[in-house]
Design a protein around this nucleic acid. Structure first.
Length: 574
RNA sequence: CGGAGUGUAGCGCAGUCUGGUAGCGCACCUGGUUUGGGACCAGGGGGUCGAAGGUUCGAGUCCUUUCACUCCGACCA
């Protein structure tokens, strides 16, 4: 491709709202163009990168025996009603009606459509297993799209679905196979990633794993162990029950408490409470109120009890009560339910209020908690006699102990680029997607589902590979293999050499020839902004028969004889 | 959803308080010089000032309505 004839337009200025390197460079380099909230056009450069990433995914998936299909983007709402997700999915699901007043949704993911496809053709266990996927635009009406391609509303996703006769096959032929395949895809793209345990949510199923590209700008917090390979999304991370301060530090004694109700005027927060009684927050119980939302507009106020030293993990809490979502409750609503903000606790609760306690509180016989009465707390409260329901609710903290090896846990940030999921019969059962097994019995498919954020990968690659001058594309993601820069096209010899190198190298590689009537500085800056792995500079030194080879990663230049340049580049690019 | 802010040339912005000829930088066009780290000189083109309504002799500027976009937060008993 000749730069002078290409639709490539770089800019010195970044969009005013861009903060992430990936967002800034994708726009400045002329890869994408913003057209609305979370909506982007892919310009020729961006499209090339997108296609390359997509090709890597496709190659590995096909090699693993998956088959590509392509499903309708506009999906009839009836399928969504069959699975029960039409209401449940919430506002992210874009619904609309056609001229005949029929309801449709823009596909945010395609479980329903894929199940519908499978049930039409698969009738026997002999046809199983099968793994189908597509790489296609998705639309999710995100609350707050941001960060360029990182969190758009329209995005390119690879979504795969496997169908099996039983759990065993789903894990072996689906889940585990995809875990390996995904790892190969991300390795080929040159990414440093980690596979972590993830929240399997209210959907159920026995497991799900996320592929996290490690980057400080990642939106997900992941918990990793310093000593072993344990890693989990904070939403799903588990730990050993933390030890009490008196168990860690011999100097510190467990506070002795006589059971009783204490007058604690205006002591509402855990900090104030710990201060008031001169104890560690560990010995107090923090009660967090949430409103749990269920189908058909049902709402329930739920209280979650955790240690004062912990924080509530909302996803865990949501799963604990099997709700669609948890939202905050206003003080007015709490008062209406007979609760006193600032003084809530597990004892003497009003009727109809559910209380769930964190698992670290199981067996606790002496703790300080709100008394459900203004300006009062219970001291020395025995939780055992209250017969509370216990669930894992607390967020794992840095410094907590690993459940696998006892090592120290710490936080790191990651970009979720892949998610694999053991679905079971969550969709096949309600949608009556069934086959006949060896005994002629009708059974729903046991399914797995697997996603890769293809467009997000572009952002992830840049987040992990860039410098202050622009992106540094990895070999398999670069828009071109090589750029040839003719320093000054008015110099006959430079032009001629550049053209002949271009002709020669184009036979084997995708080459961009910068033949624009610009100055050298302008061109080299553009080269760096495009992030192409290597460049050949044809400039002044041509008089001595020399050109330079630039490595985008190190920015080092190496002089080579013109005659050797082709061979040298070939060795670098193979 | 809650809070804050911004809409003026392709992009980034000033002008709005205090109404009176629509501006700057980049980009673009023409000519010339320059040519190894985003050149310079001269000339030039490009605007429903987000939209609708109102006040006024006169509105980018004041008032009302509306749309769009962006940022922050949703981590508390």
């Amino acid at each position: 491709m000749r730069f002078s004839e290409s639709f490539i337009y770089t800019s010195k200025e970044a969009p005013s709202d861009a903060v992430l390197p990936s967002h800034i460079y994708l726009v400045r380099g002329g890869f994408i163009q913003s057209v609305g909230a979370g909506l982007y056009n892919f310009l020729p450069l961006g499209k090339k990168v997108l296609d390359k990433v997509r090709a890597v995914a496709k190659e590995e998936l096909d090699k693993a025996g998956c088959q590509e299909v392509e499903l309708a983007f506009v999906t009839p709402s009836e399928f969504w009603k069959e699975s029960g997700r039409f209401e449940k999915y919430g506002k992210e699901l874009l619904r609309f009606k056609d001229r005949k007043d029929s309801e449709y949704v823009l596909g945010p993911t395609h479980e329903e459509m894929m199940v519908n496809m499978a049930r039409a053709f698969i009738k026997s266990y002999k046809q199983l297993p099968v793994n189908l996927y597509q790489i296609k635009t998705k639309f999710r009406d995100e609350i707050r799209p941001r960060f360029g391609l990182m969190r758009g509303r329209e995005f390119l996703m690879k979504d795969g679905y496997s169908f099996h006769k039983d759990e065993e096959s789903m894990i072996k032929d689906g889940f585990e196979k995809m875990e390996k395949t995904y790892s190969r895809i991300f390795e080929r793209l040159g990414l440093d990633f980690r596979i972590v345990e993830a929240d399997s949510g209210a959907i159920g199923g026995s497991g799900s794993k996320e592929f996290m590209v490690l980057a400080d700008s990642g939106e997900d917090t992941i918990v990793v162990c310093e000593d072993c390979d344990y890693g989990a999304n904070i939403e799903a991370a588990v730990r050993e029950n933390p030890k009490a301060p008196h168990e860690i530090d011999a100097e510190y004694e467990r506070p002795e408490m006589q059971f009783g109700k204490f007058y604690t005027p205006d002591v509402k927060t855990i900090d104030e409470l710990a201060e008031f009684f001169h104890i560690e927050p560990y010995y107090t119980l923090k009660t967090v109120a949430k409103k749990a939302l269920y189908d058909e507009g049902v709402e329930k106020i739920v209280l979650f009890g955790i240690r004062g030293s912990d924080e509530l993990q909302e996803v865990k809490a949501c799963n604990a009560v099997n709700a669609n979502d948890l939202v905050d409750v206003s003080d007015e609503e709490l008062e209406k339910a007979g609760l006193v903000p600032g003084f809530m606790g597990p004892k003497d609760l009003p009727e109809d209020v559910i209380f769930i306690a964190d698992k670290t509180l199981e067996g606790e016989i002496s703790i300080i908690a709100g008394a459900n009465e203004k300006d009062y707390h219970y001291v020395g409260l025995n939780l055992v006699v209250l017969k509370l329901e216990h669930k894992d609710l607390a967020a794992v903290k840095e410094g907590d102990s690993c459940i696998k090896c006892g090592g120290k846990l710490k936080y790191t940030k990651g970009i979720e680029v892949g998610h694999i999921f053991q679905l079971g019969t969550r969709y096949s059962a309600p949608m009556k997607a069934e086959f006949l097994d060896e005994n002629g019995k009708s059974k729903p498919f046991v399914m797995g589902t697997y996603g890769i954020g293809i467009s997000r990968l572009l952002a992830a690659i840049i987040e992990q590979h860039h410098d202050e001058r622009g992106p540094i594309w990895t070999k398999e993601s670069a828009p071109f293999d090589l750029e040839i820069i003719i320093s000054n096209i008015k110099k006959e010899e430079e032009l001629k050499t550049g053209e002949s190198l271009y002709k020669e190298l184009s036979k084997d590689f995708d080459v961009l020839l910068d033949d624009r009537k610009e100055r050298f500085g302008f061109k080299i800056s553009d080269y760096e902004l495009l992030g192409i792995p290597y460049a050949i500079i044809v400039g002044k030194k041509i008089k001595d028969g020399l050109v330079e080879i630039v490595d985008r990663k190190t920015l080092q230049k190496q002089e080579v004889n013109v005659k050797e340049a082709v061979e040298k580049i070939k060795r670098l690019l193979v």
